[in-house]
Structures are given as structure tokens and as C-alpha cells.
Design a protein around this nucleic acid. Sequence first.
DNA 1: TGCCAATATTGTACCGGTAAACTCGATCAT
DNA 2: ATGATCGAGTTTACCGGTACAATATTGGCA
Lengths: 367, 367
Amino acid sequence: MTTENSNPSYAGDLPDRSLGRKRNVTLKDVAAHAGVSKMTVSMILGGGSQSDRFSQETRLKVQNSARMLKYHPSAVAQALTRRRMNTVGIVLSQQFTSLLDDPYICGLLDGAMAVNAARGQNTTVFTAHVWHDAERSVPLFCDGRTDGLIMISPAIDSDVVQSLLDAEVPFVLVHNEDPDPRAASVSIDNKTAMKALVTHVLEHGHTRLAFLGGFPQSRSATDRYAGYCEAHALLHIPINPQLVSSLGYHYDVGVSETRRLMAMPREAAPTALICGCDKTALGAAKVLKELGFRIPQDVSITGFDDIPDAALLAPGLTTVRLPMKQMGETAANLLLEQIDRQEWTGRREILPTELVLRGTVGPPSGK
Amino acid sequence: MTTENSNPSYAGDLPDRSLGRKRNVTLKDVAAHAGVSKMTVSMILGGGSQSDRFSQETRLKVQNSARMLKYHPSAVAQALTRRRMNTVGIVLSQQFTSLLDDPYICGLLDGAMAVNAARGQNTTVFTAHVWHDAERSVPLFCDGRTDGLIMISPAIDSDVVQSLLDAEVPFVLVHNEDPDPRAASVSIDNKTAMKALVTHVLEHGHTRLAFLGGFPQSRSATDRYAGYCEAHALLHIPINPQLVSSLGYHYDVGVSETRRLMAMPREAAPTALICGCDKTALGAAKVLKELGFRIPQDVSITGFDDIPDAALLAPGLTTVRLPMKQMGETAANLLLEQIDRQEWTGRREILPTELVLRGTVGPPSGK
DNA sequence: TGCCAATATTGTACCGGTAAACTCGATCAT
DNA sequence: ATGATCGAGTTTACCGGTACAATATTGGCA
């Protein structure tokens, strides 16, 4: 008799007559509906070992009520007590539209998300429209909506880094040109990669290799240039400064520089074009074809990045593949470790790249 | 004398000796440091009209303390009381990597984010890896970390939509093939767009237009096909079913179908290729060139979407531009309206597209 | 002198959860 | 018989903020 009167005082489906605000179903509602206390519900639905402590009967009662009322726990309330949102933020320094020019970022995001998911963390992505404006973006990063950040950007205002450091928010810099040594970071080894690529070209017998580099302010650009130089030094081949430029990573640069270079007298013109990135290479290839040069019979050409279009070029572009996915994974692991251990490291990871040999490099013409 | 002893009992810079957990600076800390109550701090830092009620002196004192202690309000705690996170979630149905194949999504994101920012809302982006798995993703959407959602996907499991509806989470479907009528949605007018494009081609005098469409399960594909048909009907030109296929929106489909079509006898082969999307058109164009057909002198060709590569084709691809940015803006506005008014509409917005006439359409050869 | 309004500030009760200690009856070993 | 242990929940006190009502303090004015 006494055991029969469960759900005694619950009023039934309340249609929420508080006109204005929307009321969510809370633990308390479920508790009332099931005729138990809040804690009981919390522990049972919270899952894990906690729910073993309750009788089968109670457990079912609670689970039923939760289902009936369509209860969803509030991540916000949970985060408040647990001091943990179980969410990692990824910050992009660009608008999404310009992601199009930086396709590898997507691979990076996928890698990071996969690791987060595997470790039970959610991922959210922000873009810092007003990147330079620390006032605007930093609060967003420090307000507890994420437990840590993966910051993807070649350049970050030192103010922002300082704020993050001050706020003791765990974070990892990815693809940063010159990361703050106090922060964890993940980068690639531009110099070694370019050195290997240029060596590969030199070994085909070329001696006049043009270099269409990025802006000299950019660390990655100078590193790549250093790789170009080292490869030449290694094989004792002199560099002709006239063949070296540093006008940025753009399709149009490939176009204009190639026009300039190929207008040089036959015996001075380069027989190979080392482009700072694939987009430049694509621009260069287009001009080469227009001018009637065959690739690689007349002129060899290389890129850097391995964007999707690189494989579609005919012949396929010989280039360097960046380990995007692996960078994302490394960053996520590095971050989650910091979060779990509650200690900030300045560890710097530098990942190796991979040479992708396709069809745009061959021996120089006449050999 | 009495006014002089402010900050009486505050202990100074506490180095947080609670070993384990990280303690954030809270309102209480600032209050103690400034020698006022929590409420005073909350109201002053909360800004707006509230802070006028306090004396200049108190205000400065509080602001100073906040700055010294590097106080950042907890978005989580604020959200709990305000019942509002001031954050809009954008859900992508794909991995980021495949964003590369869908460049227009980026424009969409930018448009939505711009509106959100202008209306004082933050934006966060999720991807639903396990899209079909409602169990996994729905909790994330209903747990209060966002105030509403913009769901970008051609197809959404009806379970998910139902859950969202049940949870009374405001949301807008974007780019959805066949949106639930109870939900707000933003789409484009595929049929009208394709009709205009095909009419444009027919008006050049073509009579054999191949159609390389998407899968017939997809609403957008059937709509585009309907546009193709209507244009023919309007100009009283019969359709040859042999020239129509529906093998999906892929580069490779463009390649293989074009090979098939152009192998037909001269007087049966199409003089124009209407491709379901730009990628297909790019594949088709490549084959056409390989086979020695000139565009548009021998064969005309059209795309759909206006991806960046479309403009780089030589000659530039005649295609249809989707109003990506505007879609994002519309979606965001629709969503924020729902959030503000706390009422869910099933309003459906259908946005017009724009014809982009470049160089791949001309009169059929022989005319 | 005393009362009211305006000014400046504080106390209290939540928001929706969770950790940890506590209750209460039943079972168990001694 | 008797305290100890155990099973099955419940109570209390927060987490870090905000809304609202309550409380000093001051000055003006009849």
C-alpha cells in the first residue's frame, strides 16, 4: 500500500504559464516527477559508478521521468560546479572566407577535433575578426566557456599572448612564425623541408634555380629561404641573387615573377622554379605553359604545401606536404595535457614534413 | 580619518595555495580588494546605466581593483543567471576537410558571424562528425552553451530536427534540401537559377544540351533539373533523355560523362554541357580540352556555384553565383529574432541567385 | 526638530547543478 | 544485546554571478 503511491504531489505536464521567459526542465522537475531528491537524480543520470548505489527500481523511475520530461542537463550549470566545460576552443586568426586560401587549416582542425572527441572533449571554433584588438577577443577566451585554446595563426599580437598567460588559460600556438617561448607551440620544419626539396632538384643537375619566396618578415619564409641556401651550399652550387625574390605567397606573384624570369636571356634564365608555396607555383605553371615551355622538359617547378589543386596540375606538382592532421592532433594532445595536469609548459613541437614527388621536376633541358 | 582606511582587511596578492585546482579571480575577490560588496562590483563592472548610481570614487576604486587582480567575469556564471549565453552556434554537417570542396560554406559562415557580431552575439562553430547519430550531437545543442543554432546541411536526420523542436531550441536550417516546415529555413532558388542559365544557353541557338546533374534523391538536384526542363519547355525545345544523367556533383563525373557524351556521333553529341556544379564543369572542361574541343567555339559549358576556380578557368566559366554571404546573414537574423522574441517560426526564406556570364557559352559551332 | 526623498550601497535569494557529509533503517559479527 | 557496517537516499553548502528588495546616509523643507 505504502509503496504504491509514488509520484504523489507532481502536478503533471506543466505548460509553463510564466509568459515571458522560457523555463528549461531542470533536475528539480525530474526529481519532483520521480518523487525523489535532486541528488538522487543527479547521481543516477550522471552515470558512472555513482548510479550503482541506487536500487534498480529508483533508477528506472528516474530515467523514465527524465525521458518523459525531456530533461537535458545544463552544461552551463555543470561547468560552474565542475570548473570545467569539457570544451576546447580553436581560434582562427582569419575570416572563414580566407580559409579558402589556406586549405591546410581544415586538416588541422580535423586532426584536433578527432583527438578532442577521442578524449571526451567538445570542440568549438572561433574566428578572431579583430585579431589585433586584444580588448575584444581576449575576454572571450578567458571567460571560462572553454578550458583551453588552440590558436592557429602565423602571427599573434604579443598583447594577446600576454593576456592569455596572465589569465592562466592553457593554450597552444600552432603555425606561429615565432612563438613566445613561454607558450606551448606546434610548428613545422620549413628549413629542412625546403632543403630536401631543393636538393632533390639540384640532384637532377640544375644550376639556375629561381626562388619565389614569401615576405622576409615572415619566419617561415626566411626558414624556407635558408633551406634553399643550405641545399646549394651542400652541393657547392652558387646562388644568383637575381633569381631570388621575396614577394609573398600569391598566385599573382607566380605569374609576374615567372614572366620576368623567363624573359631573361636563355643562358641566364632559370631552369627550375622553386616556389614558396603551391599557389605561387600554380601561377608560375600557367605562365610557363602560355609561353610555350614544357614542364618538366624545359623548366622544372616545385611548390610547397600540397594543396588539392597541386595534384590536379598536369603533370602533378612536386611539392612538400605539411602534416596538417598530425599538427592538429599534436596541438590537441599538448593542450589536453596542460588542462589535465593544470600546468603550463613552454614545450615546442616541430613536426617533419613529407616530400611529394610528382611530375614537375626533371633534368634541365639539353642534358 | 575614517574615510582613509579603505582596503582594510585584504590580505594582498594571494598566490593561491590551494594546491590542486585552479582558482579564478572572482567578484568576491575584487570586492574584498576594493573594500566594497560583491553587488557593488557587479553593478559597476556590469557597466551601463547601473554604474551611474555609484560615486565616482567607488567606481574608480573598483575598476582599479579589477584591473590589478586581472578579473574576467565568468561567462558561465553569467549565463546561469541571465539564462542567456549570448552565443550562437553554427553546426556543420561535415568534417572541416570537406569544407574545402564546399568553399561557399565559408562565405556563409562569414555572413552569419558578421551579423552576430553586429548584434553583440558571439559565434561558435561545431561540426557534427556523427551527424546521423542524434544521441551524440543533440545533447551538445540543447545544453545551453548556445542560445540557438544555425544548422548548415543539405540533409538532416528528422530525429535531430525533432529533438531540437522538442527541446525548444531556436534554430534555422540552411541549405537544407527539404526543410521541416515547422522549422525556420534559408534556401536558394535552384530551379529559377538553372532555368535562367539554361535559357541563356538556349538563346544562343543550342538544341542539344547535356545535363550532368546531381543524385535524384537530392532536392536541389531535382530542382535544378526542373529548371533545365522548364527552360526547354518555354522555348519549345525537346529534351533528349540520353543527354541527361544524374551521377552526383563530382569532378570525376564531369570527366567520365564528358568522355561518354563526346564519343557520340557528331550530329547527336551535345553542343553544350550544363553541369550540375562547377566541379563537374571543371572536370568536363579538362576532358573537352584533351579531346581538342575549343570552348566555347566547339562546345559551350556552364557550371553552378561559382567556386573560386571557376574564374580561373580559361575562358572563365559561365555559372550561377549563390548568395552565400547573404544566406548567412539571413540565417543569423532569422535566428536572433527567434531568440529575442522567444517564439519559433517556420518561416522559409528562399534567396535569389545571380547569373555570372563569363566566357564558356557561345553559339553552337556551324552557326 | 522631524519626516521624506534622493543617493549610495548592501543582503538575500536564487540560477541549475555537484561534492561531501549526513541520516536512517536493516543486517551483521561478536 | 549491541555497536559496527552497509545500502539507499537526503541535506547542506557551495560554484560565480545577477535581480530585487532592503538598508544606511544625507540633505531639504515644512
